[in-house]
Nucleic acid binder design. Sequence first.
RNA 1: GGAUGGGUGGCCGAGUGGUUUAAGGCAGCGGUCUUGAAAACCGCCGGGCCUGCAAGGGUCCCGUGAGUUCGAAUCUCACCCCAUCCGCCA
Length: 432
Amino acid sequence: MHDIKAIRDDSSAFVRGLTRRGLGDAQALADGLLVQDKALRDLLVRLQTDQARRNDASKLIGQAKAKKDEALAASLMAEVAGLKESIQQGEASQRELEDALKQALAVIPNIPADDVPDGADEAANVPVAARAFGKAPGINAPKQHFEIGEALGLMDFERAAKVSGARFVYLKGDLARLERALGAFMLDTHTQKFGYTEMAPPVLVKSPALFGTNQLPKFEEDLFRTTNEDPFWLIPTAEVSLTNYVSDEILNEAELPLRFTAFTPCFRAEAGAAGRDTRGMIRQHQFSKVELVSITTPDQSNAEHERMTDAAQEILKALDLAHRVVTLCTGDMGFGAKKTYDIEVWLPGQNAYREISSCSNCGDFQARRMNTRFRNTEGKVKGPVHTLNGSGLAVGRTMVAILENYQQPEGSVAIPAALQPYMGGKKVIEKL
RNA sequence: GGAUGGGUGGCCGAGUGGUUUAAGGCAGCGGUCUUGAAAACCGCCGGGCCUGCAAGGGUCCCGUGAGUUCGAAUCUCACCCCAUCCGCCA
């Protein structure tokens, strides 16, 4: 969420940033916000003047009563009584104006960082040459992952449809184990090589948490929720649970950065994706993912973003999976991001690079929504922290990549060396 | 789900209607002393917002919301959360 004071101080930066994102009416939006802001501040000046008079007079009433000066007390009481109504009205107006302003701010996306390339959609994303890794393996007539998995008898979409409908899958035998192995391998890598703290977080959360990480109020249709009056929501990503771990807190600068990782199921309604990726495991209502979240000071977040992307890439390198990294352009970035790197893994069966991780620096955008600040070593509150999140990696899609890149002509799938210890030393996945 | 007890500043904790700007302690920061440190002593020490060039001034916040009152941390109502016990349960 944006800071209204920053918009007040420099509305042109705000307008420029949103225009780069492709919002056509950014100037009108800013003007409207500033009108609301001015109305609120004018009201506060009036209201606080009244409150000050009431407080002074009330104090004098106490003193007059102590001196038994009933006449003075009575006249002061009459004066304060007259203020009462206007104060109550003012307080109600304050609430309305503040709520309206917050609502307006809550649906405005973050401003892109200066070094984010301009562009309307994914066609304008820019490859990061230095981060490219590996070469597409030469596979003759490559099969898609679901063909491989079903032929092995280890992947069952039909029965999943019977039980849960479209966009679910049963994994069996070594593929079920592979999911668990991937989760363990990723967690071990992030905790041991990159200093992340492993978490086992809630996957049902309350609305304020989803407001904190931008899913609410704007993207409600992407989420599942329970039917209680005060509902729980199923997390679409562990970013929600891990980032909100520090909501409503003032952290000490000395304990930053905080780095959290978790292996969790994720749930997405995929409301706007009808007809896309309908076959296979690429787009499911439920999938598992290892998530990375960092909480940093403002001056650390850019370096942390590179480091987090390194950590995510490290998994693909260890699995020897060809991939590339692109910097998302202004028009393709998520709502809360200042800058995002997508990691795209090569899928021989699709003959294409597909997203397997997205690492974003959100700057202070989520921290302001969550009310998370930090205090320096002198004890002074220095303002909102910065938050970053990234997939490290999407486990289902990693399995897809392994199946397609390690497929053997006769239908079996080699297990990457780094995973073999997690698969009981097994080297190949074969038909059940 | 039932019963009881609780929610106060970074932490612990006092405070049952005005004369208080939420006592006191711990932690933190600065200083005295010391070769250095500890101890002791002295001082500083919550957050948001409005206003102001600044110094400063004002206002709101004692779980949340509504109410009573000239005035609420304190009284009333509703709700949320936590703890303990009981019931149920993986």
